[in-house]
Amino acid sequence: MPRQHRVVIAINDDASRKNIGAMLQAAEFLIIGEATDGITALKLIRVRQPDLVIAEVFLPAMSGLELARIVSDDKLAPVVLISSNYDHATLEEAKLAGAFGYLVKPVGEASLIPTVEIALSNYSEVVRLEEQVKELQEKLETRKIVEKAKGILMHTLGLTEAEAFRKIQKQSMNKRISMRAVAEAIILAHSLD
């Protein structure tokens, strides 16, 4: 059996919270926390680290939009918002808050389950891409730094490009530190002269 997705639900009105909880449970989701206000929801999310958050736009203490913004800024989980209307302004705010889905009440199983499934899969794709971007950025940065250090070695020691590269590589292996760290040390030492 695949791992059950863990969900926190923040809906103020008891009937619809229970209703949505029941539909999710029937679809093999695990409800790990329920809240009726935004602050309690935020605390629950921080502590229980769910895979998915379902929050109503209008919540006491902290609105669902504010909650979604914090949860998405801090990359805690995808948030699916629920509201009784879908006016332009609220939709814009939901987009800015980084929501992964938006459902309009009354919410039936036929719209809830596909929205939640798509949100989960989009979220994991976003996480994967973000990691990739970070990795590539780091590689690019390393390349720039190593290029600069090579330039310094070629200039000060009269080496060819290949020789300079090998020197950095060798030092990196001997000292068991990354080529980037070696390059940074070369640049630092050079700037001290």
């Binding site: 009726t36 206000d37 935004g38 309690t40 006491p60 203490a61 902290m62």
Partner: peptide, 18 residues
């Protein structure tokens, strides 16, 4: 803890039952 209405309380986080 901030209360359910968002107002600060004097309930400390590491004593609250939560």
């Amino acid at each position: 803890h901030s209360g359910e209405q968002g107002r600060p309380t004097t309930i400390t986080h590491d004593q609250a039952g939560f």
